[in-house]
């Protein structure tokens, strides 16, 4: 379970999160919506341990363990995964090598046996087939020369291979056409239920037609200002944020 209490975060001189509270249980999908600049991406990044975010107060725990004091790789080993809004290009490192290194680093950190090349390849091929990705993406350099949609699909590929306990997806739907949105949603939905918790950061209701959330939260001014079920997203779509109590 993800528990965030009174989280306060600065980026440079600006306080972006101003006492945010959120609880996400395993097996649930939560959507975080909100106007531009509300702090949605900051929330996702600070939980994953990205550089440049200063936590000035509050707590964030996963299954009772503090997350905020951990290195990013330690958080990943605990099962935290951030789907990047702008995935980073890594020339010279193939997608397959990157993913196998990541998976085995996580397994090693957990005291599990590393996965051999054949077993990994099988896993990777299955995940790629599920996401309708061409085989060529296996040996291409990570995100290099990928279109915006291909990069997002590649994030979901990583999600499927690493199968994190807590998936934080930052604007994964932006830049996707209808087909890509369908495929990406299928990937996320495959984590539904059971042990996984999913937090979707999104601007638009569109994604939520494909990944129906258990809870919807509106984040504005650095706090959660309203929470509800999936109908809250429809309400936002129809009337804007101001109408649900969040002025931009």
């Amino acid at each position: 379970m993800l528990e965030i209490h009174d989280l306060r975060v600065r980026v440079g001189d600006v306080e972006v999160l101003k006492g945010l509270d959120l609880v996400v249980r395993r097996g649930e999908v939560h959507a975080i919506m909100g106007p531009n600049g509300a702090g949605k991406s900051t929330l996702a990044k600070v939980l994953a341990g990205a550089d440049g975010y200063e936590v000035t107060g509050g707590t964030a725990t996963w299954d009772g363990e503090d997350l905020l004091g951990l290195e990013p790789e330690e958080r990943a080993a605990k099962g935290v995964f951030l789907g990047f809004q702008y995935p980073v290009e890594i020339p010279g490192v193939s997608n397959a090598y990157f993913l196998r290194t990541a998976l085995n680093a996580i397994r090693k950190a957990r005291g599990e046996e590393e996965l051999g090349a054949p077993a990994f390849l099988k896993l990777l091929k299955e995940a790629m087939a599920f996401l309708e990705m061409d085989d060529s993406f296996r040996n291409r350099f990570v995100n290099v020369g990928f279109s915006g949609g291909e990069k997002k699909r590649n994030e979901i590929l990583q999600l499927l291979v690493l199968r994190p306990a807590l998936a934080l997806l930052d604007e994964t739907d932006s830049g996707l056409d209808v087909d890509a949105l369908r495929v990406v949603s299928r990937g996320v939905n495959s984590l539904r239920g059971g042990e996984h918790a999913v937090v979707l950061v999104t601007h638009y209701q569109r994604l939520l037609d494909h990944i129906v959330p258990d809870r919807v939260h509106v984040l504005a001014g650095g706090r959660i200002v309203r929470s509800g079920d999936k109908d809250l997203a429809l309400q936002v779509e129809a009337h804007g944020y101001a109408d649900v109590g969040a002025s931009a």
């Binding site: 341990g49 550089d51 790789e73 958080r75 990943a76 990047f84 890594i90 010279g92 490192v93």
Partner: peptide, 27 residues
């Protein structure tokens, strides 16, 4: 940014550095 991306996927800092160093000449 590249180091951060690799680390966010669970790859320890030293391994990430080695990977990126190799990648630098891999092309």
């Amino acid at each position: 940014d590249q180091l951060g991306y690799l680390r966010s996927r669970g790859i320890p800092r030293a391994t990430a550095r080695q990977l990126l160093t190799g990648a630098f000449v891999a092309e």
